[in-house]
Computed example of a mutant assay.
Amino acid sequence: MNATFKRRAAQAGAALLAVGLAAGISGCRDSRAAAVDSAAEPEINIIVGGLEKVIYMPAKLSESLGYFEKEGVKVNLLGEQSGATAENALLTGSAQAVVGFYDHTIDLAAKNQCLTSVVQLANIPGEAEVVAASKADTIKSPADFEGKNLGITSLGSSTDFLTQALAGQAGVKNYTPAKVGAGQTFIAAIDNNGIDAGMTTDPTIAQLTESGKGKVLTEMRTEEGTRKALGGLYPAASVYMACDFVQKNPKTVQKLANAFVQTLRYINDHSAAEIAAKMPKEYANGGQALYEKSIKDTKTMFNRDGVIDPEGAKNVLRILDSYSSNVKGKGGSIDLSKTYTTEFVSKVPAQ
């Protein structure tokens, strides 16, 4: 039994446990869901798969700009380093929304759980596979992943799904996925030779490339790079929620959609320096100039209107059905129309 198989088995067990927990407290979650829309000031817990990551910047920026408050909804932003952990919080009812990758809605649909993206923040991943500078001469493409240690945030995360896709498309079957998180823990793994390459985001990408410690191997922060790497668009950063919560609390969901779309418009209309000035100072731990660069390198990924690309959604399903151990073989039974909705973003008032 190789290392990859062992890790996948552990991942599957964790997923089953999460689903079991969700089923066990469904009555409690339903009761909580029914009460939110009727509150004078709805309160929502949003799990963010890495508050400091530029790809999830709209969450903290919405708060900083006062858009949640303007909409009359109290939002508690709770940071997690992995989308897999975030989706478990949603399933168990400790959070009502997640800012994370759209592909989790498909991954959970394969386990008969209904999650739906209500605001699509981006139609590309905003990620890159970064190779350690010391390994750049031997790892020149995903075809060279065979036998290598590849960094991901955690098993079952979107970085895991994307790594499986890149390896699978290149015909690579044996590599070791290494849970190294993001930010400083990812950089430390590069420094200590714990990983040969890994999937990560800005500002980590900017810190590695500017310091000379890493080089971008596969670029997915642009539409061109994403199409080249994945054969089409790949809707990624989104605001997703449990379907039953959305159905029972349309007023609250609309408030969230209004706030996030206003933030997307702000991102599209302002410079990286102006955006950085609105973010917490501690997010610029590599220096303000480097943080502004990381925003500039990534900000073009964000949608303006929060609408998902339908063909991109089909591409996500195709990729997961082909290469994800969770979804493979189940794609034909997944109703893609339940994994996202444009109902709320279409009603956001004009600027």
Rank of each mutant, 00 (worst) to 15 (best):
M1H: 14
M1C: 11
N2T: 15
F5H: 12
F5T: 12
F5V: 11
F5I: 08
F5S: 13
A15E: 00
A15W: 05
L17F: 06
A18C: 13
V19I: 14
G20L: 13
G20H: 08
A23F: 15
A23D: 13
G24Y: 12
G24I: 02
D30M: 10
D30F: 11
A34P: 15
D37N: 08
I47A: 07
I47P: 01
V48T: 03
G49T: 09
V54W: 03
M57T: 13
M57Q: 06
S62R: 05
S64F: 09
Y67F: 09
F68E: 00
G72F: 06
K74H: 11
V75M: 03
L77V: 01
L78V: 14
Q81P: 11
A84Q: 13
A84F: 15
G93K: 04
A95C: 12
A97S: 14
G100P: 03
H104Q: 14
T105A: 10
D107L: 08
D107F: 14
A110H: 07
C114Q: 09
T116L: 09
V118E: 10
V118C: 10
L121Q: 09
N123M: 07
P125Q: 12
V131E: 04
V131P: 04
A132I: 10
A133P: 01
S134I: 05
K135V: 00
P142W: 04
A143S: 10
F145D: 02
E146P: 07
K148T: 02
N149P: 02
N149H: 10
N149R: 06
G151L: 00
D160H: 12
D160Y: 00
A167H: 06
Q169P: 02
G171S: 06
G171M: 12
K173G: 15
N174S: 14
N174Y: 15
K179S: 13
T185R: 07
F186S: 01
I187Y: 12
N192R: 09
N193R: 15
M199P: 05
Q207M: 11
Q207P: 04
E219K: 05
E224R: 03
E224V: 06
K228R: 08
L230M: 07
Y234P: 04
Y234W: 08
M241S: 05
A242D: 13
C243Q: 15
D244T: 09
F245A: 02
K248C: 02
K248L: 05
K251A: 12
A257E: 04
A257I: 05
F260W: 13
F260N: 06
N268P: 01
D269I: 04
D269V: 13
H270V: 02
S271G: 01
A273M: 02
E274D: 08
A276H: 00
K278H: 07
K281S: 15
A284F: 04
G286K: 03
Q288G: 05
A289I: 03
A289E: 15
Y291V: 01
S294G: 08
S294D: 04
T298E: 15
K299G: 11
M301V: 00
N303Q: 12
D309V: 07
D309F: 06
D309K: 02
E311F: 07
V316C: 05
R318F: 03
I319E: 00
D321R: 06
N326E: 12
S337W: 10
T339R: 09
T341N: 11
F344R: 00
V348T: 07
